[in-house]
Design a protein around this nucleic acid. Structure first.
Lengths: 235, 235
DNA sequence: TTGACTTTAAAACGATCGTATGAAATGATT
DNA sequence: AATCATTTCATACGATCGTTTTAAAGTCAA
């Protein structure tokens, strides 16, 4: 029925573990619960993964591999020139679509990887520094890179002021929030935003809006140095 | 040292419970852990709050009361005409600031209420429908109301098309994501966005940007019915 | 000081936690 | 058929879970 080796005990354990860790986090998930859902014996976890923590690490790797398989990060590191022929705005739009693809699964519900990630952000375990933190930062550095390229293409020169860096960070924050937020609200029992859908079609419209907002904010950097109030007027 | 009745056992239990439930969620938090942190006996929880779940409910109420005390929701229901003299754009900006005040605490770190809320969204307990869900929806309905007022003031008439409702929902989603996202990333050990700060000053700049993006998106509804691609081109 | 009531303390309850053990079942290779 | 490594199973270990019990300590009016 599934894509993974779900006919083996190890595969079924991984599949059940990913789902349970995603909803409940590491500490609240019980080993026996995973084994019941995987129709495996209680000792199977320690046999195949050494310990509960070993299962957790394997589950994170499994979830990330599945996520990357669905939507490969073609823009990271080595193959950064993969789409170098496109203009920066198009690159940004594709990158936003990728982030949404990693935050949501194929049914428009929060992806298991994103939910594990949120649990780790709320209450970091040992897996945070080792597996989670670095992968997050690689994504956001690549995103900031694209934003800088948009800026460089829009303005004449590559700027280096502190205000410029802050502006880039603000746009990255805008995009990151808009792409991570669906991983929270798309799982609610009844939708919080009936007009916003997270399936394949709605995701395209969402990526359009996010990209448009980001581009507008990137262009507004030098257009109006301070929009309304820059900092507090007094003390 | 603190504001609450932290000299009583009940107050210290509540204070410790709010913090621990916020980081670890209900299931992963141990009663003995709360009692240790509150310097109370293990039986104190069941004496003062009947059970662990009773402590959880009381902790949610306590966190919400503290949050409302810091930043009252002057825009909900009854006193909706509290700031009716202001133009809708200003009302929107103030509401966004309020949402940020409830997502972050006075030190610019994720508020305990918001973190409990995120835990409930990832893995709802019995407290979700009873305490969490309704309060979320009241906030977002008030926000949608303000957005509709902005639309009505910008365009000539109050519109009722389905596309209009979707556009309002999209803006509410934009604002909600930008206001909730800080509750996730402001707690990271080292900042993900060095150029974005969540203290009192940075929060004003953040509210400015969020409001500006929302207003731009609200004005773009009738300006360009479809921006780039409305839905998928084929099949 | 007495007596009634509220709050804290120590200890232990059964249940469940993650993990370990050793034997049975399974499968591939002689 | 016999051997051996791999996998699954029932079972149980010590620790810890939420909760209860029972008694001691504190509080305050009469």
């Amino acid at each position: 029925m599934s894509e993974d080796a779900s006919d083996t005990t190890e595969g079924r354990l991984l599949q059940a573990a990913v789902g349970l860790f995603a909803s409940q986090g590491f500490a609240a998930t019980r080993v026996r619960q995973v084994c019941d859902q995987a129709e495996a014996n209680v000792a199977a976890v320690n046999y195949h993964f050494r310990s509960k923590r070993g299962l957790y690490d394997a589950a994170i790797d499994h979830a990330r591999a599945a996520s990357v398989e669905r939507s490969p990060w073609v823009a990271l590191d080595a193959n950064r020139n993969f789409w170098a022929h496109d203009e920066p705005e198009v690159r940004l739009h594709r990158f936003v679509s990728m982030m949404l693809d990693h935050a949501l699964d194929e049914h428009g519900r929060p992806s298991e990887l994103a939910r594990i990630l949120i649990h780790e952000m709320l209450d970091p375990t040992e897996a945070f520094e080792r597996q989670v933190d670095v992968s997050i930062r690689r994504v956001f550095e690549a995103l900031a890179d694209i934003c800088r390229q948009v800026r460089k293409a829009a303005a004449g020169r590559a700027p280096r002021s502190a205000a410029e860096r802050q502006a880039i960070d603000a746009v990255v924050f805008l995009i990151g929030g808009q792409c991570m937020y669906p991983a929270l609200v798309a799982g609610l029992p009844d939708p919080l935003y009936p007009g916003v859908s997270f399936d394949a079609d709605g995701r395209v419209a969402l990526a359009d809006r996010i990209t448009a907002s980001a581009l507008a904010q990137l262009q507004a950097v030098d257009a109006a140095p301070q929009t309304k109030r820059k900092t507090k007027p007094n003390t």
